[in-house]
Design a protein around this nucleic acid. Structure first.
Lengths: 255, 255
DNA sequence: GACGGTCGTTCGCCATCAGGAAACGCAGTT
DNA sequence: AACTGCGTTTCCTGATGGCGAACGACCGTC
């Protein structure tokens, strides 16, 4: 069995389990044979894992095909709810979205990656659900850069070593020195800027949420590049963003 | 290693993994030693599992203690979003909550248990988050009973064999015959009633959501027993409930 | 500033069990 | 009625998950 990347021993069966879950997700449900083929495993092995997963609610068999189970949802909800910043930021995020008419996000960092924990938009609340619950590299995300800028140099180094600086668009910062310079600017400015570095034509501003000397996450405002580059729209948005962050920090202070 | 309950072979390492995740959740984060003690495992084993989990985002080490990771949230969000009925029911649930001023839930069944997939309440949207993402036995839940009533007798039998009829309050139906009679009444009436069978003083009505001859879940209205037993409040609520279900079914039909 | 105590982590060994191959049983199809 | 493709079961075996012990880092305490 192929083992995990360098960095010590891992449990092979766990990795098989994760691979099965991921494959079930990617293919929106699958059968034993399909999974075994795609993962290069014996049908019997896959079957044994699936039975274990079903027994614990991590998988279901709906009329013949296996799917990921709602136990993931249960643990996932818990994981999100445990972030105090989620509860503290919900209100301010909605408010900021209403004020600006743009999309607003709460982003947190885990293991050197950014995850969208909550989102809202001024006009409709459409299609945000496909973003919430997804990972991003820190360097292609305004919130991610805002968080990165607050970390000590050694920590930044570790993260970059682990995840690299993969390119997403023409504008992605892929050079360490360039990133380092930008993070210095972020620290200076108080917020980070993303100019289509993840998605072409999508600009964003991000600012870190601090409490008790710890970074709890970041807020980000995102919208069409066209709007963001108009006159002093950026400074205006930044003003609103930083005020919203203040609100979140106050909420954190008062539990 | 202790194996899973009767019903064929399971993967022991997977069960260890699930146990670790559950323990992390129950204790809101824990260290290697604590986990090993509680689960009766060697520290080294726990450590190896944790490393694997961290590598895949299913755990994080935040300043010395391990926690469940947001990868659970990612997969969990996907699992919920894959339920068409979730998207179809959101609007109607909110509307019904506003109309009635009571709590309204979307409930789905998986592996013979009910899970709260979404909730809303008329007045404030407080404390619903602690319910969404939790399991219930079908027989103590109005939505669960509504779903159960639609299933074929053999299926009901299988579920009762697997999960039993544990008592939650004085009012819980713990007798199979009694339950069978009640399910017949549910089929007759078109909706199920819960009179404090899960939580003392909490009554509820539940009705199944059908589409293409399949049950997709159930809606439930819940509130203080005192209000529910007043005059013809029940028939009035039932009317609203069944109308909301119709709306969901229409949404399902039109994608 | 030496000392237990406690923790996370690493190491090496061994019995177990996760994974493989093949066969079985059941549908639906030809 | 033979065929095909599926999920499931059975049996076997060598890789590996789990163990115990040791290590090293970090405590507060005396």
């Amino acid at each position: 069995m192929e083992r995990g990347a360098a960095g010590g021993e891992t449990v092979g069966s766990d990795e098989t389990l994760f691979a099965i879950a991921e494959q079930l997700r990617e293919s929106d449900g699958a059968g034993v044979t399909e999974l075994a083929d795609r993962l290069g495993l014996a049908k019997s092995s896959v079957h044994k894992h699936l039975r274990t997963m079903v027994e614990h609610g991590y998988a279901v068999n709906r009329d013949g095909t296996y799917h990921v189970g709602l136990e993931f949802f249960r643990v996932g909800e818990y994981t999100r709810d445990r972030y105090e910043v989620y509860h503290a930021a919900k209100g301010p995020v909605d408010a900021l979205a209403a004020e600006t008419g743009e999309m607003v996000w709460l982003i947190v960092e885990e293991n050197g990656r950014a995850m969208y924990l909550y989102g809202s938009r001024g006009d409709a609340e459409i299609s945000l659900e496909s973003i919430v619950g997804t990972w991003r590299h820190l360097h292609v995300n305004s919130g991610g850069k805002a968080i990165l800028a607050t970390l000590p140099e050694t920590e930044i180094e570790r993260i970059l070593d682990r995840h690299g600086l993969p390119m997403r668009t023409e504008n992605t910062v892929t050079d360490r020195e360039e990133l380092r310079a930008e993070l210095a600017a972020v620290r200076e400015r108080g917020y980070a800027v993303n100019r289509g570095e993840d998605v072409e034509g999508l600009h964003a501003l991000g600012a870190p949420i601090r409490h008790d000397g710890v970074v709890h996450g970041a807020l980000a405002v995102a919208g069409a590049a066209r709007r963001f580059t108009r006159d002093d729209r950026e400074t205006d948005l930044a003003e609103h963003l930083l005020t919203a962050v203040d609100d979140v920090e106050v909420n954190l202070a008062y539990q």
